[in-house]
């Protein structure tokens, strides 16, 4: 009796799954077509199995007690004759089933961002509403970094309030997003690190809220910011948000930020300006963070002095 209780208390291995349907020139690619080769980018191919069930390819990583055995930036490649397509997919290692219903084969490298995948169900009951980019539409925007908005801190905040007892689960419809109607009637839906800006009442462009650079000036990764609220002042959109950075641990720094929307490519002057502002802010917040040890602070200080801002 006792042994059975203990056995059930052990953490079991688990994994999420990636599912996709592959199309070529509008036709579904069947498994028995030997001209197609699908291979996950893993050190050892035995770390994942590929199955074809009901017109979907399934990539199932090896199970471990801490989720599927796949790297965070997992991708897989599809080779057909002389062409190849590489797809970086949203995270799926932890009990999540990521489904790409309409993967249309096209040569190139594509990155499907998490924030867009999370919006899949946004307008499922709103037949006339659309957003772009969309994983069920053309994948051309996923070849480059497009539709991003960068944050410029204008005021430091020590802490911000949180939702009360509400969860941040999946987006199953547009009511799971926060809505801000600006004085000029521009609509913004927002959540986590995604802002949908209205083109008209039915059409939206999805912007990923991110930092101007992917890493801190001391070499660690910048994490995705978290937007808590939006407001407009003198025609300019501002966000109350958390900036997240890594310094031997992930820390949040809160503030009011000016939001810069970029559709295609950010120009050099703005990039330099925003990078300077970001590095200055990172220096200030790292030095006043009591949880960062003195050795790391000295390193941050030395590197900051060498920066040419």
């Amino acid at each position: 009796m006792m042994s059975s209780v203990i056995a059930h208390a052990q953490p079991g291995p688990y994994t999420g799954t990636l599912k996709f349907r592959l199309f070529y020139k509008g036709n579904l690619v069947e498994q028995n077509d030997s001209t197609w080769h699908i291979s996950p980018a893993l050190e050892d191919p035995r770390f994942a199995s590929i199955k074809y069930i009901n017109s979907y390819y399934h990539i199932i990583p090896r199970k471990t007690p801490v989720g599927g055995d796949v790297p965070a930036n997992f991708c897989f490649s599809i080779v057909h004759l002389n062409d190849s397509m590489v797809v970086y997919v949203p995270e799926f290692a932890y009990k999540r089933e990521v489904v790409l219903d309409s993967l249309s084969f096209s040569r190139g490298i594509y990155h499907i961002p998490d924030h867009l995948y999370d919006l899949k169900g946004l307008f499922k009951n709103e037949k006339h509403s659309r957003f772009f980019p969309n994983i069920d539409s053309t994948w051309q925007p996923f070849t480059n970094r497009t539709y991003e908005c960068y944050l410029e801190k204008v005021e430091n905040i020590d802490q911000i309030s949180d939702e009360s007892f509400s969860s941040l689960g999946n987006v199953s419809n547009f009511r799971d997003m926060h809505l801000y109607r600006a004085p000029n009637n521009q609509l913004y839906y927002y959540r986590n690190n995604a802002i949908l800006s209205s083109v008209n009442n039915r059409q939206f462009i999805v912007y990923k809220v991110c930092e101007i650079t992917d890493s801190t000036f001391w070499g660690t990764k910048m994490e995705s910011p978290f937007v808590s609220s939006l407001f407009q002042k003198n025609g300019q959109l501002y966000a109350i948000a958390a900036r997240k950075y890594n310094a031997d641990g992930i820390y949040s720094s809160y503030g009011i930020f000016k939001v810069h929307f970029i559709k295609t490519k950010v120009d050099t002057t703005l990039r330099r300006y925003l990078t300077g502002k970001l590095y200055n802010d990172l220096y200030q917040i790292a030095m006043s963070n009591e949880y960062i040890n003195e050795r790391r602070k000295r390193q941050v200080s030395q590197l900051f002095k060498k920066l040419k801002l």
């Binding site: 430091n156 905040i157 802490q159 911000i160 309030s161 609220s229 407001f231 109350i240 809160y254």
Partner: peptide
């Protein structure tokens, strides 16, 4: 501020 409480440093 709007729907948020800001804690100032």
């Amino acid at each position: 501020l709007k729907d948020s409480i800001l804690v100032h440093p």
